[in-house]
Amino acid sequence: MLPGFHVNSDKPRDEFLIPLKLTWTDGPLQAGATAYPKPEEIKVGGQTLLVFTGTFPIQTEFKVPVTAPAGSATLNGKLRYQACNNEMCFRPATLEIRVPVVIE
């Protein structure tokens, strides 16, 4: 994220805010739970928000089913996010994620 910008955490306090959400489509690997970092608390106009800023990790653990075919594969996911700074917000967007892996 550029300095001054934030995205809502995966669990924003306000029900109307759009959470950060990473999802994976079915593929050769089994996606487990996704772990998000601890959010930062920032104050915007008297409201305390739970957000992520800068560079931050999101982790998903994958398991390899015994039936998974060996060879190259791609994990496909989507990252839904909604970003703001203290003065304005950008419309929600979805980032396509493609991660190449090799199953041996």
Partner: peptide, 21 residues
């Protein structure tokens, strides 16, 4: 059957939300 990085792969997706104009 295994992945190149082991039986279980921990995938760290460094979230690069597209640079804002």
């Amino acid at each position: 059957m295994r992945l190149t990085f082991g039986k279980c792969l921990i995938l760290s997706a460094l979230v690069g939300v597209p640079a804002f104009i």
